[in-house]
Design a protein around this nucleic acid. Structure first.
Lengths: 193, 193
DNA sequence: TAAACAAACTAACGCTGTTAGTATATTGTA
DNA sequence: TACAATATACTAACAGCGTTAGTTTGTTTA
């Protein structure tokens, strides 16, 4: 009754908005339904269940993060590209922490869609490393290193794990990125041997 | 009735055991109570609420991680100390992933107990850096870098975020640690200027 | 205009953390 | 030893959660 022609996309968008404004922790289907002026059970006409909703939001988050990173490295090479990439990642994590968290909750089971999402995650860093003469094996290890540094930084800062000292965390992050660049440079030298 | 003289510690220990065996995700007070052959409401004679239970388990996890790290670096210096520290951290995360996760859920509000726990987290890496001639400011930044790398690695591997390639993740982790050691070495040179 | 479909509904189930009120076993004290 | 106090268990219930079944109703298609 009082049908409003809600689409699947409307549901996802409303869910993203709600998660970003109220936090992932307090998100619920009943609250989402209430925002859309329907009952929770009516959501099931548009989504299969909560897990799939999270999965879709996770895909969205990954694609947004990817876009931000690709935009950041456009036209840049080597050190400048890596620094810009790290900066874009860091800003995404700080500006959209709730959406960022959803990525980690993705069920990384061998599934075609998740397989693609996995490669969307690594594409920016892989591209940014193009300017370095590295073997594929080195790149496969090094992209993990980069992602560990960035994810570790964002999630710990968000959780309040860096509050022991007042020093600027962005500065600590730049230091971490510098360590990664050093690693790229020596890996490059070793690859030539 | 049929009183069994349960103590606060019994509850915490049973909770830890249950989380480690069944996973943090499926943990519930009713399941915990069932394992102890009491009703869920009876738990409230021993704990204030679930948040406080998690907080205590988080303290436990931090102290275990700290012990493992301090044991690992005993008698070691510089590169060997850092590598041993990283290895101990990595193994803790792999062997006790469910308990490890609880640390991140700790409410890092300014509170005396949590303040102490925060310093328990950084003590091992701070000690391991003793062999390097660094300024206090450098150490405060660098401990964040180390923790980011290690936490980023553990949490992403646990979440399945490193499954794009078959390469050994432990090898990727050693590479990350090598980058951190490079950073320590260059920071040391800069500190002498 | 009738049939098919889509999108909403109500009601309920089993799960969750949590509280109030009650009974009983253990412990401390006179 | 007897009595009071305390601690530990209980039952019953509440509000919230995700989810399902069955039903009504508006819209679209034939």
């Amino acid at each position: 009754m009082a049908r409003q022609g809600l689409t699947h996309a409307d549901i996802i968008n409303a869910a993203i908005e709600l998660i970003e404004s109220e936090g992932l922790h307090s998100f619920s289907l009943r609250e989402l339904a209430s925002r859309l002026h329907i009952k929770a059970s009516s959501l099931y006409n548009h989504i299969r269940n909560m897990d799939e909703l999270y999965t879709e939001i996770g895909y969205y988050a990954i694609s947004e993060l990817k876009k931000a990173q690709l935009r950041a490295i456009e036209g840049k090479e080597r050190t400048r590209a890596i620094e810009a990439l790290a900066d874009a990642y860091y800003r995404f994590g700080k500006e959209r922490p709730e959406i960022y968290k959803v990525i980690l909750s993705l069920p990384m089971v061998k599934n075609d869609a998740i397989h693609k999402a996995g490669f969307d995650i690594i594409e920016p860093i892989m591209t940014a490393m193009d300017g370095y003469r590295l073997t594929d094996l080195q790149k496969r290890h090094l992209q993990r290193v980069f992602r560990s540094i960035m994810h570790g930084f964002i999630s710990q800062e968000e959780a309040g794990c860096f509050r022991q000292f007042p020093e600027d965390t962005a500065e600590s992050c730049r230091m971490a990125v510098r360590g990664f660049i050093l690693l790229l440079e020596i890996s490059e030298k070793e690859a030539r041997i």
